[in-house]
Simulated assay, not measured.
Amino acid sequence: MNDNRRPYRKPMRMSGYDYNTNNRYFLTFCTERRQCILSTIKPGDVFNPAILTLTEIGTIVDSYIKSSENVQGITIDHYVIMPNHVHILLTLIHDETYNGSSRAPTPTNSVIARFISGLKRLINREIGHNIWQRGYYDHIIRNEDDYRNTWLYISNNPAHWAEDQYFQT
């Protein structure tokens, strides 16, 4: 605890890294209290080990992620909408003239922070209330092997839902 009697929060962003840098990023953001409201996952068969079915809210999330392809400088490479969280693998390629808006405070007012903030805000507006936990987790993709492993992790995540760190019944 610090002097203000507030619990210490570990910084979620890499210190000194410019999140406006053109690169690939793996992002994860969760529902409030990790409620399983986005999809359901049921066991499948040998050829399809998990059957992921989007809920009505998950369908809204999916439509906004797909429409994010129109966001200047961001390409959604791969994503999955799990029951209580979303994984997105994206590529950031932008120029210095991009000036999106966000309520995110400086110093997190990067293109990625504005993207996640805007995505959550639009989804919340359509649903009519906040469904998201504050913030998001990120991983900066370091090389092609890291990219490939992250892609496979996203693809295989539904099949490993019961072992997932966010698993809840």
Rank of each mutant, 00 (worst) to 15 (best):
V111A: 13
A50W: 06
L90Y: 03
F47V: 09
H78V: 04
T55Q: 05
H78Y: 08
T150W: 02
E144P: 05
H85I: 05
I93F: 09
I123M: 07
P43A: 09
V71S: 08
V111C: 10
H139W: 04
Q72M: 10
G100V: 03
E56Q: 14
N70S: 13
W161S: 02
S101E: 13
E96W: 11
N70D: 10
S63F: 07
C36A: 11
Y137P: 06
N130A: 12
I140P: 04
H87M: 03
D138T: 00
E126K: 15
F47R: 14
D138P: 05
N84D: 05
Y136P: 04
S155L: 14
F115W: 12
P49W: 09
L54V: 05
D145P: 00
N130L: 10
S68L: 09
T150D: 02
P49F: 11
H129Q: 14
Q35N: 12
H129M: 13
D62C: 11
S102W: 08
I116C: 07
Y64P: 00
S68W: 08
H78Q: 13
E56G: 00
L119Y: 04
R121T: 14
E163Q: 15
Y153F: 08
K42C: 11
N124V: 10
S102K: 05
I141Y: 06
H139C: 01
W151N: 03
F115K: 04
R121M: 14
T108V: 11
D145H: 08
I37G: 03
T97M: 13
A162V: 15
C36R: 11
P49S: 09
R33K: 14
K42D: 14
D77H: 07
P158T: 02
T106M: 12
I112C: 01
N70Q: 15
D138H: 05
A113Y: 06
H139P: 02
N84C: 01
E163A: 15
A162K: 15
P105T: 09
V46D: 15
R148L: 11
R134E: 14
H78A: 04
V80D: 07
D138Q: 01
T55W: 06
I51G: 01
I81W: 02
D164S: 07
I57G: 01
A159L: 07
L92K: 03
I154P: 00
T59Q: 14
R34P: 05
N130C: 13
Y98L: 15
I60F: 06
R134W: 09
P105W: 05
R148F: 10
Q133H: 12
N156C: 10
W132E: 07
V61W: 04
N143E: 05
W151R: 04
Y79L: 04
N99T: 14
H87Y: 07
V61I: 08
H139A: 00
R121V: 08
N48E: 14
I65G: 01
V71T: 13
I81F: 05
K42T: 15
W161P: 01
P158F: 08
I131L: 10
L89W: 04
K120D: 12
T55V: 06
G118V: 08
S39I: 00
L52A: 03
S110T: 13
H87W: 04
H87T: 03
V80Q: 01
S39G: 02
